[in-house]
């Protein structure tokens, strides 16, 4: 099937999901609430203050995680490289938790501090994993994953230390946040992460051709005239920026960054000029859908969306690990 057609279908599905999901939840909101806010005040407030911000946040978070997963997979030339497996999520989570624990409330040039801390955490873990793989010269999937797991455990332990030192309510908040979720009220959090995510998306879309060439290997990319070092640094920066800001607000939502790019690859192929748009839309739509599920299955209670994605993602991850053939065809490991 034509790639543009596939992309169009994904766009249509995503738009439908985004349009429908604000209506779904403990209270079903009719479409009319969009247009007649005065008729039904309570429903309108639910829609505008709770549902819409939440849906938009879920879309941004899903899109950013999916796109950064795609970027890491291309950079490491490895199907299992994701924000989660590389320890980037944990690094970002540690940064954000540290910010909370220190009781910091600063903003620099109106940039909120928590995403900045998370971003630094994300960069540190990318740097650690990348240096380890560099140091080993030729690295296998196993080395990469072990390095990622090690970094992940390290930061998880540091988060536990922070939790241990915190009081009970604080600790509970950290645990809940670590489960991952997009429950926000009002648009403030959306505005806070939007600049980071937009910058990251812009960089990655700008470097579509370079991503394509990098998947063939650094030597080939270089011989075609790609400034490999600069492009790689930019891409790491962009991906970490997105993961950092999303994790700071929504916690480490797992598996979106791994599953969505792979599913998109199955449908649209490896060409990043299409894959980037597809990953963005699909990742966003997927998380919006998971979030809708998370607030309806046991309504009025909610399951954190991170649990839903992990429930779906765990088996998928195993399938990917066991199914060696798909690993070869989806992406040849470097």
């Amino acid at each position: 099937m034509n790639k543009k057609v596939v992309l169009l279908l994904i766009s249509i599905c995503t738009v439908c999901i985004i349009a429908v999901s604000p209506m779904i939840g403990m209270d079903t909101i009719p479409f009319s609430a969009f247009f007649n806010p005065i008729d039904d005040n309570v429903k309108s407030i639910i829609l505008w203050e709770i549902r819409l911000p939440r849906v938009i946040m879920a879309f941004i978070a899903g899109a950013a995680l999916s796109l950064s997963g795609m970027t890491f997979q291309a950079l490491f030339r490895n199907p299992l490289a994701t924000p989660f497996t590389l320890g980037v999520s944990s690094g970002a989570a540690f940064g954000a938790a540290l910010y909370v624990k220190l009781g910091l409330f600063f903003s620099f040039l109106s940039i909120p501090g928590q995403p900045v801390f998370a971003f630094i955490g994300a960069l540190v873990s990318v740097f650690i994993v990348y240096s380890l793989t560099r140091f080993k010269k030729s690295f296998s999937t196993a080395t990469l994953l072990l390095a990622g797991v090690a970094v992940s455990f390290f930061f998880s332990s540091l988060i536990l230390v922070i939790q241990y030192l915190s009081d009970f309510t604080h600790s509970f908040r950290i645990i809940r946040w670590l489960m991952g979720g997009v429950e926000i009220v009002g648009f403030e959090s959306v505005y806070n992460i939007l600049p980071f995510v937009t910058a990251g998306i812009a960089i990655i879309f700008f470097l579509n051709n370079e991503l394509n060439l990098l998947t063939f290997g650094e030597d080939i990319a270089f011989s075609r005239g790609v400034n490999v070092q600069r492009v790689k640094i930019l891409l790491y920066f962009a991906a970490s920026l997105m993961v950092g800001s999303v994790v700071a607000t929504c916690g480490p939502i797992g598996f979106v960054g791994m599953m969505c790019p792979h599913i998109c690859r199955l449908f649209i192929g490896q060409d990043h000029r299409y894959l980037a748009s597809a990953s963005l839309l699909f990742g966003g739509g997927f998380l919006v859908m998971c979030d809708a599920v998370s607030r309806t299955v046991i309504a009025p209670a909610e399951i954190p969306v991170g649990i839903i994605t992990a429930l779906l993602g765990g088996p998928f991850f195993l399938w990917l690990l066991i199914n060696g053939k798909s690993e070869q065809s989806i992406m040849n490991s470097g």
């Binding site: 998947t215 075609r224 005239g225 790609v226 400034n227 490896q270 040849n332």
Partner: peptide, 22 residues
């Protein structure tokens, strides 16, 4: 500059099966 160098030199690596679905 990288791109200018690439206009002068191209490289054909050993065909070693690292080819992706393009």
């Amino acid at each position: 500059r990288n791109k200018d160098l690439a206009k002068l030199i191209s490289y054909v690596p050993q065909a070693d099966g690292r080819f992706l679905p393009f």
